[in-house]
Nucleic acid binder design. Structure first.
Lengths: 289, 289
DNA sequence: AATACCGAAGTTTTTGCAATTCCATAGTAG
DNA sequence: CTACTATGGAATTGCAAAAACTTCGGTATT
């Protein structure tokens, strides 16, 4: 019961005519006769009977034809579907964003304005290695099996966000130890960022009092803007800060920054937009400076 | 996209392991590798990727596997279904009953008491030629393409049915012309039988007055039994007459009879019960005598 | 005479196997 | 902790068997 024979059979069943069917599928007529006979042999059933010098379907042949009526289109749709998938996949950029997710999300939104057919597969997974673009930081040990084809290390300054109505807001910059008694808002799930910030504080000689641990930069903004606390705010990672009630102050000492590592990989299948989006990301960072 | 390759692929997809799959489907591992590669080539897509020293499905492979999950069982069910059909068909006796249908129906009911799995395909169609058993009469021109393997011609006497309360009922037999003024009940749809009966009357020198034309022997019985008419009643064709209000009289002149021709054919596929039922039919006629 | 299916012989393509190679992991010793 | 070795597992190559096609000729139907 090979598929080809079933297709042959189906053609003959439709034409009810060997020669025409053979012509249709572009093989010699004896080959077709043989194929049908071998199929009949396999099923141990007559599929056609001679009627005059033509042939007609038997009860069994009719049944087989009806079954094939649904099965063959089903099978034929597979290559087409896979082709569609291929197209979609080639337009997909696989991202592994271990840091600076909000920044990348903004970049994606911006990028799609000019490339509306681009698709982004966005993950945060230290294990995953088969991505086009990985963004990590100096605290992370993301080890890919293959070397990146391009790699950019960007120093990201980390500001102190203070409420506008606080006494700090008019300052140009600040010493971190000056806010040692303030209450801090920290990101809970961005643990790595939390670790770094704690290190800053310990360099400044204090251990921060935690007012609130939140999941989202937005929540951090909201809490700061109530005037009840301060927070560290990374230059790029959380996107632009556009809240009139919060002010970002550079920290004089200690040096508050971290390294953003943006890597481009050659994946298979080749992603059409990967390299272009990589360059777009770097440009976005430059524009922010 | 041959079915075999798809099956091979499916095995590999299930095992996620070439060698094990090759063992499972009983071919050598290189053959399997080649088959998969050729499938990948046809679809222009990688179906597996190496992971360490094993292989795992790609996105495309996963999709193909899921599709096959429904398609393969669908195809595999076909031979089984055809086998079932074959069994059923072999137990079917194809009848073409151009005369004596009631008689045959009784025989079928009787026969199935001893052969409950026998199936009867009962038709009345002068065109149809691929039947196991054909019953016709001397007035019919049923011409099959092949000669019958067995043939039995039986003379069927045709009685005159009269009401029990009529003056004819005590007689042993009757001259047809004696009932020339009676009103007749004729079968309308059994046109051939009607023709014969009209011939009998014309031989007897009269044209019968028609009281009623009916479709069913039962209706004929009912009408006769009201005492309002007489009718011709074939010896076998309409089954036994068991009605206390009607009496069957042999007709002395003209000779009232017709020939029942019962033929057995060799059909393909071979019907298991055809010959046996043929003999049963003949025996039923003998028993009636 | 024309149409249409079937059969036989020869050729090409596909499929399968065996031996081998290549690669990645795991184990082991210095 | 590095390096050498063993092992598991897939890919490559070369060759044999089987399947599928083609051409040519045959036979039956109209």
């Amino acid at each position: 019961m090979e598929l080809q024979k079933l297709r042959y059979f189906y053609a003959v069943a439709k034409f009810q005519h060997m020669t025409k069917a053979a012509e249709y599928i572009s093989i010699a007529q004896p080959a077709l006769s043989q194929a049908i006979k071998s199929l009949e042999n396999e099923l141990q059933v007559e599929l056609f009977v001679k009627k005059g010098r033509n042939i007609v379907l038997t009860e069994y042949g009719l049944y087989l034809k009806e079954r094939l009526e649904t099965i063959l289109p089903e099978i034929d749709s597979i290559p087409a579907e896979i082709d569609k998938m291929k197209k979609r996949v080639s337009k997909t950029v696989k991202l592994n964003i271990l840091a600076a997710s909000a920044f990348v999300i903004n970049a994606i939104v911006e990028y799609r304005k000019n490339h509306p057919d681009a698709v982004f597969d966005f993950e945060q997974n230290e294990q995953r290695t088969d991505c086009d673009i990985v963004i990590s930081t100096n605290g992370l040990t993301h080890s890919s099996l293959v070397p990146s084809v391009n790699r950019c290390v960007k120093t990201e300054r980390i500001y102190l966000a203070v409420p506008k109505n606080s006494s700090y807001s008019p300052m140009e910059s600040i010493e971190l130890r000056d806010v040692r008694d303030e209450e801090f808002v920290m990101l809970s799930n961005a643990r790595l960022f939390g670790v770094i910030c704690n290190e800053f504080c310990s360099k400044a000689g204090f251990y921060p009092k935690i007012l609130f641990e939140s999941d989202s930069p937005t929540a951090v903004q909201n809490i700061i803007s109530t005037g009840t606390g301060v927070a560290f705010w990374p230059e790029y990672s959380w996107g632009e800060l556009n809240n009139d009630n919060v002010v970002l102050l550079p920290v004089k000492t200690p040096v508050c920054s971290r390294e953003l590592i943006i890597e481009l990989y050659e994946t298979l299948p080749r992603s059409e937009y990967a390299e272009d989006f990589y360059n777009f990301l770097l440009q976005q960072i430059s524009d922010n400076e």
